[in-house]
Amino acid sequence: MAFEPFMQLIRSVQKRRIGVGGSVQNTQQMAYLRHLQKEMNKENAMLVPLQELDVVVFDIETTGFIPEKDSILSIGAIKMKGSKIIEEEQFYSLIFYDQNIPKDIVELTGISDELVRSAPSIGDVLIKFFEFSQDATFVAHHATHERNFMQYYSTKVFKTPFKHRIVDTSFLYKIINPQFQNISLESLCEYNKIPIIDRHNALSDAKMTAKIWSIYMNKAIEIGCETLEDVYTHFAKI
């Protein structure tokens, strides 16, 4: 589908503050967001050649692990075309949070109460993130965390389910290194001699994950995987 109407919608929505407790005032806008999600489902990314697949590798930092109780503090992302990382196509934003961030989260992420007090709302950030991503396939390391939060907040803020496909890095690295079980991002980076820089910053983690995805995509192609469907087929045999 053409995305220019969606861009026009984005610009109109961004003129309002869309908070967790707010709503998109125009019901037509909400309907269009739902329509966009449905259109994304029609794109069969499973059959696109891996080296032609448009991917957005992303990471989130949160106050905890339970979407119903915790909040997203930041989102970072970088685009890829096949195994190529597009360095100039990056996204990063802090997200407004009006409570005290747990001390262990501040120490882990470096995100303080002061930093998020002036940040844009979750609704504003998600709209910009969807604009950045368009219809690309999402990739995340141990993606259940990202998937749970994105599903919850898409429903809570926009009253529509989150329909982007999110592919977990494990689908690639486990068909190459089946001995790795729920390996951490830093351990996987160390194994592949990828420098660990600014860990637990959402954008930095997304960049390291993109390097992992690139390495293992090329290895998957070497063993005969041409599409995500082939990757899933190999994964099912592990």
Rank of each mutant, 00 (worst) to 15 (best):
M1F: 07
M1C: 09
M1N: 07
P5I: 06
M7D: 15
I10Y: 08
S12T: 12
Q14Y: 08
R16W: 04
V20D: 06
V20L: 15
G21T: 10
G22P: 02
N26A: 14
N26I: 13
T27V: 14
Q28P: 03
Q29D: 15
M30L: 14
A31C: 11
Y32P: 05
R34E: 14
H35L: 13
H35E: 12
K42W: 13
N44A: 05
N44M: 05
A45N: 12
V48G: 01
V48K: 10
V48D: 04
Q51E: 15
L53G: 00
D54M: 01
D54G: 01
F58K: 03
D59I: 01
I60L: 07
T62K: 03
T62E: 02
F65L: 14
I66Q: 13
I66A: 04
E68L: 00
E68W: 00
S71P: 00
L73R: 08
L73D: 10
I75F: 02
A77L: 00
A77T: 01
K81G: 00
G82H: 05
S83P: 06
E88R: 09
E88H: 09
E89D: 12
Q90F: 03
Q90D: 02
Q90N: 04
S93N: 10
I95Y: 02
F96C: 12
D98P: 02
P102Y: 12
I105E: 08
I105M: 05
V106Y: 06
E107A: 12
G110M: 09
S112R: 11
D113L: 03
D113Y: 00
D113M: 00
D113G: 02
E114N: 05
L115Y: 07
R117A: 12
A119W: 07
S121F: 08
I122T: 01
G123W: 13
G123D: 13
F129V: 10
F130K: 09
F130L: 14
F130N: 07
D135K: 14
D135G: 02
D135I: 07
D135N: 13
A136L: 08
A136I: 05
A136H: 15
T137S: 14
V139E: 10
V139H: 07
H142N: 12
H145Y: 00
R147Q: 13
N148K: 11
Q151G: 13
Y153E: 00
Y153S: 00
S154F: 14
T155A: 08
K156T: 10
F158R: 05
K159T: 05
P161Q: 09
H164L: 09
R165W: 07
R165A: 05
V167S: 03
V167Q: 07
T169M: 09
S170Q: 12
F171I: 08
Y173T: 01
I176N: 11
N177E: 06
P178V: 10
Q179N: 12
F180C: 07
F180T: 04
S184G: 11
E186I: 13
L188S: 11
I194P: 02
P195Y: 04
D198K: 10
R199F: 08
H200S: 08
L203H: 06
L203E: 03
D205I: 05
D205T: 09
T209H: 03
T209N: 03
W213P: 04
A220E: 08
C225G: 08
C225Q: 13
T227F: 06
E229C: 08
D230T: 01
V231D: 04
